[in-house]
Design a binder for these strands. Structure first.
Length: 513
RNA sequence: GGCCCGGUCGUCUAGUGGUUAGGAUGCCGCCCUUUCAAGGCGGAGGUCGCGGGUUCAAGUCCCGUCCGGGCUACCA
């Protein structure tokens, strides 16, 4: 029987990296086993559901390259894939009546106030808190009939049996068991007629033929109730696996302080989806050998639930940055250029940087946005030139956004001068003469190659008895780029071309002189 | 309070009774070199949460303990 897994998020906000990992595990398991991956929207809490959020989830997942065989956006044999729609189409009424008839569930008419009072009393008495008996678990049928006839609102609760040991065999955590006496009676159907997660997830997983449930560890405590529900309904129990959480580097819950929390934010920051996936999947899972840089296919080939670690992992932004740079360097030149292009063509990239708060010691969001705009326009105007720039810069970027500031000097008429660099290299006495000699040397060469440029500068150094190339190279670099760091000078000169070089050397000579 | 889960360099991890506890990231150094990177090489960093036990031998098995986390909603 084919493996069928589902990612079943509740769209109430942004798609978090922890959720992305769960989705990735689902996807990898399905593809590894040649099964199906299903997206199901758990929106039974109508007060928290957001349509924007659902769209955001789907877009994030699409960007991440996580594909689904069935779902609200692609259809499939089990439509609808939104639980609210499934509720109105009545899929949960059958199981609820069955449970009611067999006595595995009962109607409870408690009011919110009554429940609160019960909880308070339990807390005060230091007793386990929950609906263990309540007023209605063992109520007389006539009393129930009377309450119902009076039109009182009720919920349907699951009747947890007493004195049983319930266990699951979780591929990630192994054997976990509970005494049913510690389990209270969960609400299955709310007073508004909507199912709770406990009911809806189990019914839908069964109806959709789900064989493996992968979910967050916050579900582990209620897994026993779910196992019981499957049994009460006479359904086969799928494999249930609980993933550990992802924490911030300081061990606290992942939050804004640790960097971005939503998947799309990483996109706008310029991370390749392949890098984010690779990084995320390695929190809590490893291929079992010493490989770390993995392609999607390699992840699929190596994935197994048993290889997932039960302990929580920490999100280390430094390692993500390294991995991001590594994935950029893994791309062939054309693929990289296309990635940069589509990154910049999405207007949200620039918007994102424009509205980003400044970090100390780094270019402001606004500056980055401006440099990215410059790159974007340069790609449109002269793709050949821009492509050369991107290729030249690939060794020194960590994200796609780094191409903006790095490439800036190629596209402005005159680069901004770093005062320290000017001070260090443009004030030396030989500089005006050095620049003159390069300008003169370039005169007969319409399109200087990097070899031409190297010959010119080496020639100058030799002629003037310089022991090292530095005193010739550095002033030229500052004149052409405005800074002391960057790509190889000769390569950069070839790309810049004669007229830009000459113009910049002349201007720098004025500054120097 | 009750129930459940977790605990190997700062971080991600390998490891399933016998290894000098391996790799990666980050940090430091060297090499390459026109700078910065990238790349190569090397270094520091772990009494495997702690305490007992079992065993010739324990990160690995058992017991206890501490710490961290989750759940304890008519949220998921």
């Amino acid at each position: 029987m084919a493996v069928r897994v589902r990612f079943a998020p509740s769209p109430t906000g942004l798609l978090h990296v922890g959720a992305l990992r769960t989705a990735l595990f689902d996807f990898l398991l399905a593809r590894h086993q040649g099964g199906q991956n299903i997206l199901r929207i758990e929106d039974t809490d109508r007060s928290r559901y957001s349509e924007d959020s659902e769209h955001e989830f789907i877009e994030s997942l699409r960007w991440a390259g996580i594909t689904f065989d069935e779902g609200p956006h692609v259809g499939g044999p089990h439509v609808p894939y939104r639980q609210s729609e499934r509720a109105t189409s009545g899929v949960y009424v059958g199981p609820v009546s069955k449970l009611l008839e067999s006595g595995d569930a009962y109607k409870a008419f408690d009011t919110t106030d009554e429940l609160a009072a019960m909880r308070k009393a339990q807390e005060d008495a230091k007793e386990p808190v929950g609906y263990f008996g309540g007023a209605w678990r063992d109520a007389d049928p006539s009393e129930v009939a009377r309450a119902e006839a009076a039109g009182h609102k009720y919920v349907v609760r699951q009747r947890i049996p007493r004195g049983k040991v319930i266990a699951i065999d979780d591929p990630i955590r192994g054997h976990v068991e509970w005494s049913s006496d510690t389990l209270d009676d969960p609400v299955l159907l709310k007073a508004d007629g909507m199912p709770t997660y406990h009911l809806a997830a189990i019914v839908d997983d069964h109806l959709m033929g789900i064989t493996h449930v992968i979910r967050g560890e916050e579900w582990l405590p209620s897994a026993a109730k779910h196992v019981l529900l499957y049994r009460m309904l006479g359904w086969e129990i799928p494999v249930i696996a609980h993933c550990p959480v992802i924490l911030g580097k300081d061990g606290k819950k992942l939050s804004k302080r640790h960097g971005a929390t939503s998947v799309l934010e990483y996109r706008w920051e310029g991370y390749l989806a392949s890098a984010l996936n690779n990084f995320i999947v390695l929190i809590g899972w490893s291929p079992g050998d010493e490989r770390e840089l993995l392609t999607e296919q390699e992840m699929i080939d190596a994935f197994s639930l048993e290889g997932v670690q039960p302990s929580p992992g920490h999100f280390d932004l430094d390692k993500l940055k390294w991995m991001s740079g590594a994935h950029i360097r893994l791309l062939a030149a054309d693929a990289l250029f296309d990635a940069v292009k589509s990154y910049l063509e999405d207007p949200r990239t620039i918007e994102f940087w424009d509205s980003r708060e400044a970090e100390p010691g780094k270019p402001s969001g606004h500056e980055i946005a401006a440099s990215l705009t410059l790159l974007r326009d340069a790609i449109a105007k002269d793709p050949e030139y821009a492509r050369g720039v991107v290729v030249l810069l690939r060794e020194r970027v960590q994200t796609l956004a780094d191409f903006g500031p790095g490439a800036r000097f190629f596209f402005v008429d005159m680069p901004e001068m770093d005062p320290k660099a000017v001070e260090k290299w443009l004030t030396q006495p030989h500089v005006p003469q050095l620049f003159d000699s390069i300008v003169q040397g370039l005169d007969p060469i319409a399109q200087p190659t990097k070899e031409d440029c190297e010959a010119l500068i080496r020639g100058y150094a030799e002629k003037h008895g310089l022991e090292k190339l530095g005193p010739a190279v550095h002033p030229v670099r500052v004149a052409l780029t405005g800074t002391t760091a960057g790509p190889g000078l000769f390569e950069l000169m070839e790309l810049l071309g004669r007229s830009r070089i000459v113009a910049r050397l002349r201007r720098a000579k004025e500054i120097a002189g």
